[in-house]
Design a protein around this nucleic acid. Structure first.
Lengths: 259, 259
DNA sequence: TATCATTTGTTCGTATGTATC
DNA sequence: CGATACATACGAACAAATGAT
């Protein structure tokens, strides 16, 4: 059964034994693992070795540890919330979020004057370090409680002469409506990345161990394919997945693939 | 400078001090951190405490440790490869991958008869545990060397009566062409998730510590919005990001958001 | 409310193995 | 080969969270 012998470091053998037990459903999702003391007894190793093995499984996202209680098998990561990243426009010309339900604002949106970074500047056709409007939101989904961080970046050149100059904290659908009223025919491109959260993101989004975040960057393009607005969305990958609808283009979009 | 005092565990204070130093560019990307011995001296703590702090920074993806050499600040995660997840069709009716360059097959594609899971079954309109064709590919990008795992799932009902029955290992663009020839007007939906890799995925894709994978599921829909084929793509989030083009729908797509 | 046993978290010390240069 | 640096492993003690008495 749980005999230790073969490959690599001792703690890795222990980790492999526990991992196999989990994957063989000897410990089903939600079930508690044996305590450290029991694992020490079972595999005849020291406490540091057992803790090292547990740390390995934890960083794989296989188990979850609760101080004073024990280790538990994590349920298979099935994101409970599907965010449809399409944009819908009604016949009346109003834009709506395809995610149906309204999101609740945990705090009022905060507006800053910020500077572009190496990532956001080029996407807006600006240099690095240029100033623009930034609006941050912390939102929760009403039924699931899932939290998301949303940021809107509006260059001064986009806001000038529109209602955005006075209200850079407009909601995305309102921003789209304002830009449409300004005479733009809109389309969007969205880039999805995944990475481990920074400590402050872990706090704000309440993200557990070994859980990445999905980080999307949406660029709103206007007439002449000019980038107008940039939105960033960050959400725990444990709680949400993103869906896109794809149809065939007749012509390939000319776009360089960065080396 | 690096004085330790305030909050939480000792090793967290050490980790915070090093993290701040990194973020303040005291240690720029690629630069080596002080050795364990130097950190012990600098912060006047024991070796386990230093190692614990280093482990924390490692799991944040901030640093990278090389046995026998030292710890190094990781470059900001800027995925070098952008995968455009659109589908292009030429006037001649041929489909092409929008990623331009051809991918190289590391190994010949392998065909299995596999069963649907709780995740893949419903997406294909099947139950859980139904049998179908599965074709696995391990690909590399010719210039960047980025590896991706690709899997095609073809239900028997889809393959029946088409060229897919004899060649379930056709490439995706060929699959689309075959289905189009069979009279389908195709569209696709794609779902993006992120999670930590399993040990075998880490091996196959050569994924370092604290690096999530992007896991996409693309469903090919035919006439009557019937799901025909499912493709899965797995790639290191360090090396790749995904982009989608979005245009406005006139009518909202009816789709339930799972609770 | 208070106490206690259980369980995980933190920190020290020490010794040895292994990769790099 | 030796010096340096990280990896593994053992032992021991106390702190902190949890749940039951």
């Amino acid at each position: 059964m749980g005999e230790i012998q073969r490959p690599g470091a001792l703690y890795q053998q222990v980790a492999a034994a526990i991992r196999d037990a989990i994957l063989n459903n000897e410990f089903p999702p939600g079930a508690p693992l044996p305590s450290e003391a029991q694992l020490i007894e079972r595999y005849q190793v020291s406490r540091p070795t057992v803790r090292n093995a547990i740390a390995a499984l934890r960083s794989e996202g296989l188990i979850e540890v609760q101080h004073g209680k024990g280790s538990f098998v994590r349920a298979a990561v099935e994101p409970g919330l599907t965010l449809e990243r399409n944009v819908t426009r009604t016949k009346a010309g109003r834009f709506t979020a395809t995610d149906g339900a309204q999101w609740d604002e945990v705090e009022p949106p905060t507006i800053h004057r910020i500077r572009t970074t190496a990532a956001t500047g080029p996407a807006l056709g600006l240099g690095e370090g240029d100033e623009l409007f930034g609006c941050d939101r912390l939102l929760t989904h009403p039924t699931t409680g899932t939290r998301v961080l949303h940021r809107t970046l509006i260059p001064y050149a986009t806001a000038d002469g529109t209602a955005l100059a006075k209200a850079p904290d407009a909601e995305p659908t309102a921003v789209y409506a304002i830009l449409t009223k300004a005479g733009h025919e809109l389309w969007w491109s969205e880039t999805v990345r995944a990475r481990m959260p920074l400590p402050d993101e872990r706090t704000a989004l309440d993200i557990p161990d070994a859980t990445p975040i999905l980080h999307t960057t949406r660029t709103t393009h206007g007439t002449d394919d000019q980038p107008l607005v940039l939105e960033e969305l960050r959400v725990s990958a444990d709680h949400a997945q993103l869906t896109y609808r794809i149809t065939t283009d007749k012509a390939p979009t000319a776009r360089r693939t960065r080396a």
